[in-house]
Design a protein around this nucleic acid. Sequence first.
DNA 1: ACTAAAATGATAATCATTATCTTAATCACT
DNA 2: AGTGATTAAGATAATGATTATCATTTTAGT
Lengths: 133, 133
Amino acid sequence: MSALSHLTPHQTTVFNLLKTLESEVSAQTLYAELRAQKHRLGLATVYRALKHLQLQGVVQARSLPNGEAVYSLVSEEKHYVTCVKCGTSVPLEHCPIDEQTMPQAVAPHFKIFYHTLEFFGLCSPCLEQETVT
Amino acid sequence: MSALSHLTPHQTTVFNLLKTLESEVSAQTLYAELRAQKHRLGLATVYRALKHLQLQGVVQARSLPNGEAVYSLVSEEKHYVTCVKCGTSVPLEHCPIDEQTMPQAVAPHFKIFYHTLEFFGLCSPCLEQETVT
DNA sequence: ACTAAAATGATAATCATTATCTTAATCACT
DNA sequence: AGTGATTAAGATAATGATTATCATTTTAGT
């Protein structure tokens, strides 16, 4: 990974908090957590910091079906199975992408930072509801 | 694919339009197109129809970074490379998922309808902007 | 210290989606 | 066909995350 361009104190704060978290979080949650830790920054700054870190290739984002985005470090290689009915999202342990074909699959003129892989379907409870109904 | 449960006329209309489209479309676009075709239905009905078709496993959804969702038939096996800066989304021709490991990768108690695979990074123009700046 | 550029805060604006609630259509059964 | 119950639909308000705006503060380089 190339060196990060200079980060402002606030950007560093956001980055550091992300490093301590095990799972993805929304910008709103990050903001609430930082405020709870007595950091004085605005919500817009959190969004801007996340955008900046994304452009640096160190933070990744995933859009949930409910419209909110969740963020995590790029190093967190996690994929998910998501229920299209209730929205439950379960992480996968292993990435089933063929390592050989992956590099060729991406367009030649893109610099790739990360990828997301998600399976969608029905979780057991929702599946039962559907078949019963 | 199991038989679809009964579809209402409006649900059928939405489904049929999706069948004629080559690329993914948002609910808003579907609504505008249907209205342009003199169909009399409400926006909420389009959203409800899409939700219903999703639960049937025949329509898939993908959330874009800007927060809107785009829909397409499940049969459209397309994956994308998306620029984290400008949002440009380019389809891949080939799915690089290892067919062998895929079934084992999904959680045992999920009924899987489809999957999405996306690569994120910077497209050429945006990459140049970043390195220049 | 000084000026230009970048970052920040506060808040308004945007916009897709969902909820609500009333009305209309459909269905099962007699 | 009639009736009551269930489901679908329409219209629109409400929600909520994200972005835009703009005035102010901070930073970097000279």
